[in-house]
Simulated assay, not measured.
Amino acid sequence: MKLLITGANGFVGKNLIIHLGEIDDIEVISFTRENKIDELPHLLNKVDAVIHLAGVNRPKDDYEFQVGNADLTVALCEAVKQQARAIPIVFSSSIQADRNNAYGCSKKAAEDALLSLSEKTGNPVYIFRLANVFGKWCKPNYNSMVATFCHNIIRDIPIQVHDETAEVQLVYVDDVVRMMLECVQDAVNAIRTNKMPPASGFVQAGPVYTKTVGHIAQQLNFFKESRNTLISERVGTGFTRKLYSTYVSYLPTDKFTYSVPKYGDERGVFVEMLKTPDAGQFSYFTAHSGITRGGHYHHTKTEKFLVIKGKACFGFRHMVTDEFYELFTDGENPEIVETVPGWSHDITNVGDDEMVVMLWANEIFDRENPDTYASPVAQPRELKK
């Protein structure tokens, strides 16, 4: 498939180009600020579809809205007419197209030109009225609140919040790109197989999130603070996942890493890596040869141990029946060992080298209520190497 991308160097364009590079048999023709409008007829030669992202949103003069949004789109429509064949067009409009301001009016004029083209010629046209798009590579201190907040908060630059309760609508750049590509592929495939392409009109660009400015600022500050508390926000799904990915994308290279506390004694070291609000915490510890760690039980807390280096003997003793059980594991054969409430447990390094063990607990350690009670396993046993 051969695609013409206008505005290829912009925020959405950069993300789109990268995604297109991951698809086989895609040829991209770029139209940028370096190109002239009269080049469009030539660039459209043998193009299968157009994704029209080019536009003006921060001009020095309002007249530039008309030139960069409406006039460019009209010229694109005329160039498509000259091809005398169906060329699906995906257009990135704005939710401001229904507002009576210079930017909104120019976007509405561009929409009207495309819809007129579709009505008169049957050329497929798909309009995305985008809310505030956020994601990696958006320019801060330009026209994106999220980009500016991310950039400033990471760098300890104050942010300005005029109204914490003000609501904004947001869409994530990867969702926008995915929907645009699906739209183009469906239309092109239909044309190639002599079928009717999807009907022209307005298309939803993935989930739209409505959030307050205060909520976004607070969430970004939580992300920053998590490096100190080690408590991660719920970044696995939905809006928070996408906002966190965006936040991290603004890290300068000297902030790609951060230190965590290390607690050491004659037995080895203990390091906490990550804590979660409702799914426990992750850590690791080491033990020198012959060292035993643990020797306690829990009422409710549970843990998972994974020896990733060395050889270990786990000992267990039931707190009521005094039943004893032991098992051996090592880093060469990954095996999760569960601690069971009501059983005292310990772990001994039975190898010659240092042992390294990864540990997950189902709750964040609470010094005021640790649910950890000393009780050595205290069973005579021969530790096997």
Score class of each variant (00 low, 15 high):
T372R: 15
I157K: 13
V176T: 05
A361E: 07
S344I: 09
G310I: 05
V80S: 06
E119M: 13
K242W: 01
D346E: 15
Y209I: 06
T329N: 01
Y63I: 14
L115T: 06
L16T: 01
H162Y: 09
A187Q: 04
G55V: 08
T257Y: 14
G104F: 10
N141V: 04
E332T: 13
Q219D: 01
T121N: 08
F222S: 14
L130R: 11
Y142K: 07
L230P: 00
Q82S: 12
H151W: 13
F282E: 02
L40D: 03
M179Y: 12
K136Y: 03
V213M: 14
R381S: 11
S283R: 02
I87Q: 10
Y297Q: 07
G135F: 09
N221R: 15
L130I: 10
I51T: 05
N69Q: 06
I291R: 04
V340T: 13
E338K: 12
A131H: 15
Y325V: 05
L359I: 13
F202H: 09
R293C: 06
T6K: 10
C313K: 06
I347F: 07
G236S: 11
S375T: 07
W137E: 06
Y63M: 04
C313P: 06
M358K: 06
E27H: 08
Y297P: 00
F285M: 11
I154T: 10
Q83I: 04
G206L: 03
H151Y: 15
V248P: 02
T165Q: 15
A187T: 07
E335S: 14
N123W: 03
V377E: 05
G351S: 13
G21M: 01
F324P: 11
G315I: 01
V67Q: 12
G280F: 07
M180S: 05
A287Q: 02
K311W: 10
T253Y: 08
N100Y: 09
V90G: 00
T237H: 11
R293Y: 00
C138L: 00
V12R: 01
A49D: 00
V320C: 04
F11D: 01
R241A: 10
G10F: 06
M196E: 12
M355A: 13
S94H: 09
K60P: 00
V203W: 03
G104K: 15
H288T: 08
R267G: 02
A86H: 14
P41D: 15
V350H: 02
I154D: 10
I159G: 01
Y325K: 14
V173P: 03
L274K: 09
E225D: 15
K107I: 09
V340P: 00
P261H: 07
A287Y: 02
R178Y: 07
T321E: 15
Y325H: 14
E266W: 01
A131G: 12
Y325I: 05
A97F: 08
E164S: 13
Y142R: 08
T339K: 14
R178H: 07
E332M: 11
S116P: 00
A374E: 14
E338Q: 15
I154G: 06
T329F: 03
E225C: 11
F65P: 09
Y263W: 05
A361S: 13
N228A: 15
C313Y: 02
D278K: 13
V248I: 13
I157G: 03
H215C: 02
L114P: 03
I364H: 03
A287V: 06
A217V: 00
L243T: 04
E39A: 14
L243F: 04
